[in-house]
């Protein structure tokens, strides 16, 4: 479990990082928190020629809020996202989910943007970004472009990022006042990747709904049938019944396809019921 021999360079700015990548070529990798990359290197699942350390690029770090949106810098550590008062107040979905990202030691080093860019289908942050309709800010040789979350996650570890492009941040519009949210996952042990997980955003008066499952398919997936049912005013049971309609579900060692479909339905039913109870109480 030793990595291959690789070159190491450190970038101080985003242009610097892009230039170093252009010099090193496609076998280079950006190193951020390293919590997935270093394991992959130790297993020799990946044998890069060069690691470009971007952890000193100050512009990539931090959370900024303006009147309309919250921007999370790609290098912001999970632990800093968890401690952010802005996130806690404005994006409680992310605040609820972040505690489920692995363990404290990993959250101290792992980064928000690293998780989103890696696009592990079982990871929480990509699912949150999709549920919140985030927009990816991507720097490349030709400047900066923006890609909505719906067009970003393409498959297992597969995103709209082209080789050499760097995810610099994610911008999320403030949810409308009165929006409701839900997060739930089922993992065999605290900190494990979930067997199934759910991120839920419902706009006031059910004008809109985004239902995102993670860890049941090859990417975080929107449950379009369930979303339509919520908007149409269907009952909790009716919505849960169509939870995975139209979704290609993949099994894994802990849960087969049927179990994942069942879990997705249970999670959705429970979260919707909880929201209904909350509403009734209020």
């Amino acid at each position: 479990m030793k990595t291959n021999a690789f070159a190491y360079v450190r970038a101080d700015t985003v242009p610097d990082a892009l230039r170093l990548y252009a010099e090193a070529g496609e076998d280079a990798r950006y190193l951020a928190g390293g919590q997935s990359l270093m394991a992959a290197l130790n297993f020799r699942l990946d044998e890069p020629s060069t690691l470009i350390d971007i952890t000193r690029v100050a512009a990539l770090r931090g959370i900024v809020a303006d009147a309309d949106a919250i921007r999370i810098g790609a290098l912001t550590r999970h632990a800093d996202v968890a401690d952010s008062a802005v996130i806690t107040a404005e994006l409680p979905l992310i605040h609820a989910a972040i505690g489920h990202v692995a363990h404290p030691a990993i959250r101290n080093r792992g980064t928000f943007g690293g998780s989103v860019a890696l696009a592990d289908p079982a990871a929480e942050m990509p699912a949150c970004v999709l549920a919140l309709g985030g927009v990816m800010e991507i720097a490349g040789q030709d400047g900066t472009r923006h890609v909505p979350a719906d067009a970003f996650f393409l498959g297992t570890y597969e995103t709209a990022l082209a080789p050499g492009e760097l995810l610099t941040g994610v911008t999320i519009q403030r949810p409308a006042p009165g929006s409701r949210w839900g997060f739930a996952e089922l993992a065999r042990r605290a900190g494990d990747y979930a067997m199934a997980g759910l991120c839920l955003m419902i706009a006031p008066d059910r004008r809109d709904a985004r239902v995102v499952f993670f860890s049941i398919s090859d990417r975080p997936v929107r449950a379009r049938a369930a979303e339509a049912a919520i908007i149409a005013g269907a009952s909790v049971i009716e919505v849960a019944a169509v939870a995975t309609d139209g979704i290609e579900v993949y099994g894994d060692l802990n849960a087969g396809i049927a179990t994942k479909r069942h879990y997705a339905s249970v999670l959705l039913r429970r979260e919707l019921a909880r929201l209904d109870q909350q509403e009734a109480a209020a």
Partner: peptide, 14 residues
């Protein structure tokens, strides 16, 4: 006794 095996014992999943 995994969660999935318990669901099978309950007849919830095949």
């Amino acid at each position: 006794m995994t969660p999935e095996r318990i669901l099978r014992a309950l007849g919830t999943v095949a």
